[in-house]
């Protein structure tokens, strides 16, 4: 079976959730990956949506984080203050799954605006939503984003959510208690923070992707791991389940 780059990204992101108990899920790419993981790799994975659905088991991909099916299939339904204060803030949730319009080399994220300045933005984006505290408080953060020089930028227009700040121990100094972004899965490969500098380093390319392509898709001089691996191609099962999920979710 052949596959698209977006399918490879979803499949690889879903594999990241093997062995985890709970995942705080945003809508879009992360929701696809988390729902795929629950079907193929980790049937017990607890999906938590910021609308207050804890342990949701949707049969199709929700369009919004508050679709009715999320509450109807959840283990518990709680209020919005409760989901953030009791569930997210104390560090109870294993994985936060985020995406962004811009990301820098320390995996800080921008979902606020692009171009111009804050008062006069060229493109106003939706803003932060739950992301700043998901990035701060989940035990680990996975990021899923399509890689291009427009998204992988030298300098963010706005820091909406903190990854590793200015690198090294900047994150700890800010008092952020979760480990931060441990994995960035893109449509061309996987990046992981350097253990010391925390700079994102390419550790894996997807099948058929050249390192030169990844460099060209990055707005800074990309560090590449000496032992670069190649992602396992999607299995037939992964692709079949993913396509079924997407098909069932069409309007």
């Amino acid at each position: 079976m052949s596959w698209t780059t977006d399918e490879m990204m979803s499949v690889e992101a879903a594999r990241s959730l093997v062995g985890h108990v709970s995942c705080f899920v945003g809508i879009g790419l992360p929701s696809t990956a988390a729902n795929l993981a629950r079907r193929v790799h980790n049937p017990d994975l607890v999906l938590i949506y910021e609308s207050g659905a804890v342990g949701a088991k949707p049969t199709r991909l929700p369009l919004s984080i508050g679709d009715g099916e999320l509450a109807e299939t959840a283990d518990a339904v709680v209020s919005v203050p409760e989901i953030f204060n009791y569930w997210l803030q104390p560090g109870r949730i294993d994985v936060g799954f985020l995406s962004a319009a811009q990301l820098d080399r320390y995996a800080n994220l921008n979902t606020t605006f692009i171009g111009g300045d804050y008062a006069h933005p060229r493109v106003r984006l939706p803003g932060s939503g739950g992301a700043p505290e998901i990035a701060a408080s989940c035990r680990e953060v996975f990021i899923m984003v399509r890689q291009s020089p427009r998204t992988f930028v030298e300098r963010l227009d706005f820091v909406t959510s903190v990854g590793f700040g200015a690198g090294h121990d900047a994150r700890e100094k800010l008092g952020l208690r979760g480990r931060g972004p441990v994995r960035v899965v893109t449509d061309v490969g996987v990046l992981e923070p350097d253990p010391v500098t925390r700079e994102l380093t390419l550790t894996r390319v997807h099948p058929g992707v050249d390192v030169a392509d990844v460099r060209a898709a990055t707005g800074w001089e990309l560090k590449v791991a000496p032992s670069l691996e190649v992602t396992e191609p999607p299995t037939e099962e992964e692709l079949t389940v993913l396509r079924g999920l997407v098909e069932r979710s069409k309007p």
Binding site: V80, F84, N85, E133, A136, L176
Partner: peptide
């Protein structure tokens, strides 16, 4: 952020002038 807004309402409902949270750092 969502966490901030949710807590601002909690403070309002509680008759307090402000709410405290772990948030916004950095």
């Amino acid at each position: 952020s969502h966490a901030g807004m949710a807590n601002r309402y909690v403070a309002g409902a509680s008759g307090l002038p402000f709410a405290v949270l772990r948030g916004y750092q950095g």
